[in-house]
Amino acid sequence: MKTMIKRFALISTVVGLCLTVPVSATAPEGLETEANAPSSSSMPFQIPYNNFCSNSESGDFDFEIVNTSDQPVTFTLYFYNVNGASITAPGLPGSADSAQTNIVPGTKKTLAAHAAALYYADSTSSTGYCTTGRPFSGEIVVNSGEAVFMARGSLYSARRNTNFSANILQEITVNNGQPFKLIATEPTLASK
C-alpha cells in the first residue's frame, strides 16, 4: 500500500510539473513601473532646504536642467517656498568663473538641443531669500512638444560663530538622476 501511495505521489508530481503554466510578474493594476509609466507634461521634485539660513552667513542654491533632446524645447521651471507660494525672483548673474543664472523661475524659456538652463541664488546677496525666497519644492513643465531632460541641484550652507562651525552640502536629485521625458499636453477647447 505504501509503495502504491509513493507511486501515485510521484506520478502526480510529474504530471503537475508538466501542466504548470509559466507566469510572468507584472506590476499590480494602477501601479506603473518606470519602463511603462505614461509620459507627463511635468516633473515635480523636492528641495531639502530645512536647515540654517541667514542673510549674514553663506547659503548657496544652484539648479541646472539639461535638454538631452536633439531639438529645442520650451519649458518653465517653477520653485515654491515653504508656504507653497511661487518664487519668481531672478537668480544672481554670476560670472564666467562662478555659478551662473540664465533662467527666471516662472517664466517660459526656450532651450536649444543639448543646452543647459542654470539658476543660482545665495542668502547673502538675494533680498528676502531666507524669509520668502528659499525654495522647498519645484517643478519642470514642458510648454510645447516633447523633450528629454536631466536635472540636478545642490544646497550649500555654512554657519560659523565662536563656538561652532558647520558646512552642509545637500544634493537635489530629480528622477533619481536619470533622464526623464516630458510631453506637453494639448490645450482643450475650453482653455483656448
Rank of each mutant, 00 (worst) to 15 (best):
G133C: 11
Y119D: 09
C130L: 04
P135Y: 03
N102Q: 01
I103D: 13
M150Q: 11
T127L: 03
T110Y: 05
T132A: 06
Y156V: 13
A151D: 03
L118K: 15
G106Q: 05
T110K: 10
R134E: 02
S125C: 05
A115S: 11
G153F: 00
E146W: 12
A99T: 09
S98Y: 04
Y120R: 07
Y120E: 02
G138S: 08
S98W: 03
F149T: 01
Q100F: 04
V142E: 10
G153Y: 01
T110Q: 12
T127W: 07
S98C: 02
R152W: 04
S126V: 07
V104P: 07
A147Y: 09
T107I: 09
S144P: 01
V142R: 09
S137E: 09
A112W: 11
V141F: 12
A113V: 04
S126P: 05
A121L: 06
G133F: 08
V141T: 13
V104T: 13
G153P: 00
T110C: 11
T101N: 14
N143I: 07
T101V: 05
P135M: 00
R134K: 10
A121Y: 01
A117N: 05
S123V: 02
V142N: 04
K108R: 06
L118Y: 11
S125W: 14
A99K: 10
G133T: 06
P105C: 00
A116V: 09
K108L: 14
G133W: 10
K108V: 08
G106C: 06
Y156D: 03
G128N: 08
R152P: 14
V142S: 09
G133L: 15
E146F: 03
R134L: 09
P105F: 00
Y156E: 06
P105H: 04
F149H: 03
V142G: 07
A117T: 14
T107H: 08
A147Q: 12
I140D: 11
G133I: 14
S137F: 01
V104F: 01
A116R: 08
I140C: 05
